[in-house]
């Protein structure tokens, strides 16, 4: 613990201070409303953090259901029409031998969203019920959710590119399906959910620094 001497041994909140989330300036809590340096709104913790996290997470989860049921892409050609859901799209890639790309899409469209639902819900539950779980584990999980969420957008961009590019009239046309709309909504709302969760809540239950 080489750095032990440069800490005060308490949080800003315990010292009656709040940190500006943008410029980092500290303020005395009851007095300050907006940052004296940069003008941003000051609050010690994000307002109703858990409530917002749950609200966005539930919307994201609800949108993920139609995203998997409805087709995300409709292929029209002279040999007939076919439609792909997220899952059949991955299967088609795997069957055509593009294993690596199939795995990338599987991770982005299935693993990451599901992992995010589970991790965010787990973190929120653990904060709500104050489960005994190491702060460092929870801190690590929180960092992961903030980092991975945006990568789920891959499938949305794939559909956008294919729908724009494959416009060869009667020979071959690809159109976006209703599922991709729901999928994009699901990604956006889980991103909101992850940013609503205030990481400082993870540490508030503990009184000693490690």
């Amino acid at each position: 613990m080489a750095t032990a001497d440069n800490t005060l041994g308490l949080t800003a909140q315990q010292a009656g201070l709040a940190r500006c989330r943008f410029c980092g300036a500290l303020h005395r809590l009851p007095a300050a409303n907006s940052c004296r340096l940069c003008g941003a709104h000051i609050s010690s913790r994000k307002l109703s953090s858990l409530q917002r996290t749950w609200a966005f997470l539930i919307v994201g989860l609800m949108a993920y259901i139609p995203a998997n049921i409805y087709p995300i892409m409709i292929t029209k050609s002279f040999s007939g029409n076919s439609s792909d859901t997220i899952f059949t799209g991955i299967l088609a890639l795997a069957q055509s031998g593009s294993w690596f790309v199939a795995i990338v899409v599987f991770v982005a469209s299935v693993c990451i969203p599901v992992a995010k639902f589970v991790i965010i819900a787990g973190l929120a539950l653990s904060l709500h019920f104050q489960w005994a779980m190491s702060e460092h584990t929870r801190h690590y999980l929180h960092t992961i959710t903030e980092f991975i969420g945006r990568w789920s957008m891959i499938d949305v961009f794939v559909v956008a590119v294919l729908a724009a590019l494959i416009q060869l009239g009667a020979i071959l046309t690809i159109e976006p399906g209703a599922g991709i709309n729901a999928f994009a909504l699901s990604v956006v709302f889980t991103m909101f959910s992850a940013t609503s969760l205030d990481p400082r809540l993870i540490w508030d239950g503990t009184d000693s620094g490690k």
Binding site: T3, N6, T7, L8, G9, L10, T11, A12, Q13, A15, L17, R19, R21, G24, A25, L26, H27, S44, E135, H139, P199, R200, I202, W203, D204, G209
Partner: peptide, 16 residues
């Protein structure tokens, strides 16, 4: 002084 202190953005721990 306030400006000699830094609070961690992730866990609110105060440092000089």
């Amino acid at each position: 002084a306030f400006d000699d202190l830094v609070a961690c953005a992730s866990c609110d721990w105060l440092h000089y």
